[in-house]
Design a protein around this nucleic acid. Sequence first.
DNA 1: ATCTTAACTGTGT
DNA 2: ACACAGTTAAGAT
Length: 166
Amino acid sequence: MKNEYIELPVATADGHFVARYSEKGLAGLSFPAARASARAVKPAEIPSQIRAWHRATESALKKILAGNQPKEFPPIELTGTDFQKSVWRQLQKISAGKTKSYGEIAQAIGKPKAVRAVGGACGANPIPVLVPCHRVLAANQKIGGFSGGMHWKRSLLTREGVRVKD
DNA sequence: ATCTTAACTGTGT
DNA sequence: ACACAGTTAAGAT
């Protein structure tokens, strides 16, 4: 398989995230690995297009980590099933400091009973943080789960001024 | 208020 | 076909 993906590190106060770009835009984002595998990439080898996207990614990521709403996002390339893309699209409509429940997302995409499947789609989200899967709480403001680690979800929500039960 | 159960849907094997 | 998942609402204790 011809992998056109380019991975670039994003240095933040929380560690080095890794952004993955396809030809269409940002396609994936990983939380800082315990063993930071910061591979050095020569700037000259990176297409200017991607460098521009990366600049936007870096900016947006840092703002969210600080609990603020980014004014601009890099182009995002979502790869997944139609259902998942529908869910992820709804997630992007949730601004910083706001939350929605799995049930509300399900209802928003016209499948009110698919609440559980929505949870699955969130867990399959390739771009955490920028596609705010962490702003989705269970019913009654209870914190649900989080694939990338519960501490991230809690921390991010706290920074955005959101209070969760427990 | 906490625990147990049953309903429901999308996805991976 | 089967089991699981980042759920939920309802019923029992």
